[in-house]
Design a protein around this nucleic acid. Structure first.
Lengths: 119, 119
DNA sequence: TCCATATTCAACCCAGCAGTTAAGTAAGCA
DNA sequence: TGCTTACTTAACTGCTGGGTTGAATATGGA
């Protein structure tokens, strides 16, 4: 249902929204049901549902119904084309995973990561 | 004049537009004057001027006046934070520069790279 | 000094996106 | 069969983004 090769337009646009990036960060830890994804945010469930649809269209997540629950899971390959594109400019730098951790924490600061972790 | 640490919001939004990505691709080869940047595109000069302003705000290019010409040059460091963020999800694969070349060609297909190359 | 070149600014139009609420569908359960 | 949970769709609103044209600014050259 999600296009195979979403354009960079679609992918970068999907990544441009902080709510959506936060969602991706949450899904990095674990698959989640839509309702649980929505929980930490202040916007309506319908709004989150739309965000998820955008992420699906961008090929960044996949949704899978099991019973009446729809599970959302990260689709890391979806980032590949964008990653390739960016690194063409980046030439340089090796990735610093600590930097990434810091980003996630900073971003999730606004949208707590669901209390699964220790208090 | 451009903010030091443009947010990922701003950076990804800047990258989400094909015209702006094409501009970045052109600047990868060489610094260019605004008029020359605009030449291959079908939109007005004013529109390109706005695109360039967006790229400056995102910290992806820098503009420098020399005489009456304003030179635009790539600011590759501007992609760093976004790159770090993405690779946090990408974990994986080393960059394939050939992939990147292909992207550029594909994208510039719509907006020829200024006729500097051979006919 | 006057004109041409290079670029931005201002005002406006229109399309699309993030958000809302309310209604609709789908699945499990009593 | 009917209620509840889980989610999406529809219809609407307000704002932003990319485009336009036309005027304004800045610089270099005759």
């Amino acid at each position: 249902m999600a296009p195979q090769n979403p354009s960079l337009d679609i992918i970068f646009a999907a990544l441009a929204d902080p709510t959506r990036r936060a969602i991706l960060g949450m899904l990095l830890e674990d698959d989640m049901a839509v309702t649980d994804v929505a929980a930490p945010f202040e916007v309506s469930l319908a709004a989150i549902s739309k965000h998820l649809a955008v992420l699906v269209t961008a090929g960044l997540i996949r949704q899978e119904r099991r019973g009446r629950i729809i599970w959302c899971k990260l689709e890391p390959e979806g980032l590949r084309s964008a990653s390739v594109w960016m690194q063409g400019f980046g030439q340089f730098e090796p990735v610093d995973l600590d930097d990434f951790e810091r980003f996630l924490l900073a971003e999730l600061g606004g949208a707590p990561s669901e209390g699964k972790e220790q208090p």
